[in-house]
Amino acid sequence: MPPRRKRPPAPHRNEAARLADQLQQAGYTKRDIARIINRDASLVSQFYTKNKGAAFVPALTQVLTAVHTAGISDITELASIAAPHTTRRTTASGTRARVRTKAVLITPTGTGTGRAGAQAIASGSARLRPLIAEAARQGLRLAFTVRLAKTGYVHVSGSRTDSPGIRRGVIQRADHTEERSYGSAATGGFSAADIARRVDAAGGDVTAAIHRWLVETGRIHADAHITHLEIRTWHPR
């Protein structure tokens, strides 16, 4: 008989991850835990992936004690219990450290670009929503490029009916997909405010909003699947 393969050892989890596991066993989600410690949910995930969370062990310990011994289950109450045991990082001078956030890449001249690949597309291209919202706030214009299977388009490549005034706005890929651009500074593009309203109507799903516009205007078939999306902004002339 061939020798049995040894099972790989279970991944080591730090104390914060173990405490988070216990809270999840008690019925709380990672998002709930994030609310309790007043942090972003992505940080809780980093307890597992990046070995973070040591600073939250005292707070999580107090919260678990409250859940198991006092029977407290309300997230707001648990957050008030955790609050005295969580502190923000400070700089050497004692001031509160800045928290890095994702920047909305719009320059003072109004130009900005945001891209979403296959993974981001699956979650609605949420990373593009702040870019569109900021462009709408500034009264900017925008254009976008989509990539999908050639068979998903209604019109043939380069058709002026598909995107009037856009030349060389088509890129054909070896995997039988095609990128097509809609709008440009030369043609005036689209009102960012209009696109922002469409995104809001789609519940924040940028992919769905753009897909709906392309279907409504007769450019793609309803069952076409967008695999990549790019948004570009600029000040109107």
Rank of each mutant, 00 (worst) to 15 (best):
I121A: 07
T101N: 07
T145F: 01
T233L: 03
V57Q: 02
R13E: 13
A20Y: 04
S125T: 10
A103V: 13
T107K: 15
A209I: 06
N51L: 08
A193E: 13
S157A: 15
R197V: 07
V146G: 02
G139I: 04
T227V: 15
Q25E: 15
A133G: 05
R129C: 08
A126D: 03
A97C: 07
S157R: 12
G110F: 05
V154F: 06
A103E: 12
G183N: 03
G169H: 04
I33H: 04
L140N: 04
P3H: 11
L19G: 03
I36R: 01
R232A: 12
E179H: 08
F144I: 03
R31E: 14
G114C: 05
A196C: 02
D205P: 05
G117S: 14
R18G: 07
A135H: 00
P84D: 10
D200V: 10
P84K: 11
S42V: 11
R232F: 06
P3C: 08
G152I: 12
S163P: 04
T177A: 11
R7E: 13
Q119F: 10
T109E: 13
G218M: 10
V215P: 01
A143F: 05
K102M: 10
A59E: 04
K50H: 14
R232E: 13
T177E: 07
Y28N: 08
V44L: 01
A120F: 09
T161H: 11
V67M: 10
L142S: 01
H235G: 03
R35H: 10
R100E: 12
A41L: 01
G169W: 00
D74A: 14
S191F: 01
I121R: 06
